[in-house]
Amino acid sequence: MNKNAHMIKVENVDKFFGDLHVLKNIDFEVIKGEVVCVIGPSGSGKSTLLRCLNHLERITSGKVYIDGEMVDYRVGDKDAMKIDGSKVTEMCSELGMVFQRFNLFPHKTALGNVTLAPMIVRKTDKQEAEKKGMELLKSVGLESKRDEYPARLSGGQQQRVAIARAMAMDPKILLFDEPTSALDPELVGEVLEVMKKLAFSGMTMMVVTHEMGFARDVADRVVFMDDGSVIEEGTPEEIFGNPKSKRLKEFLALTK
């Protein structure tokens, strides 16, 4: 397999929060076009792994590559490569991120949320950004809400706007950090529907989730993490149908 086929590659990554060892020698990769779901109990390091990819957290040691380019290389909490701030922001704009708590900009309308970053980061002109923004809102089924402020939208609608906002930067990969965990149960479906559509369109996705149904139906590969380590990975059939490790079996029994 050639190196460039890796959209994400993580090598020997360790992460400490003080004395707490949250990621333990992680090796992890996502191939172009792949949908990878990361599952595991709370506190297993799934979200931290995701957040280390776009510098929202800094790894303590190890290497991170995005689309073949090294974006972080640290040894014992020290940069082992020169970190160029503008390069990091540029790299971030290629990694779309969807947060558990949406993090929409409350002072902007739905359309304003989608067009803000293209306009100020990519200097796209307003007309063009809005045209594309409307297409994206349409693709998440919210073109009628273009002028609503986030406070007036339901959680499910907010998260769909957040997905459109992430897509507006034409990311190479979308990262989802428990995108449905903060939603009322009846609103989960509409968000998963949008994510499914994206997955089938060939988008590379890394999804940290508790939605086992989604992982089973949509993922190309499922990664099970526990206590800061990758315990097991495989196709959904392997993970859900034939779990090997004791911890995965226990976890699946609990989530049934």
């Binding site: 922001t89 947060f99 929409l104």
Partner: peptide, 14 residues
């Protein structure tokens, strides 16, 4: 909320 700064950073803003 610090999520606002994170969302901005994740969208590539300085």
């Amino acid at each position: 909320d610090k999520g606002q700064l994170e969302a901005s950073k994740a969208l590539g803003m300085s």
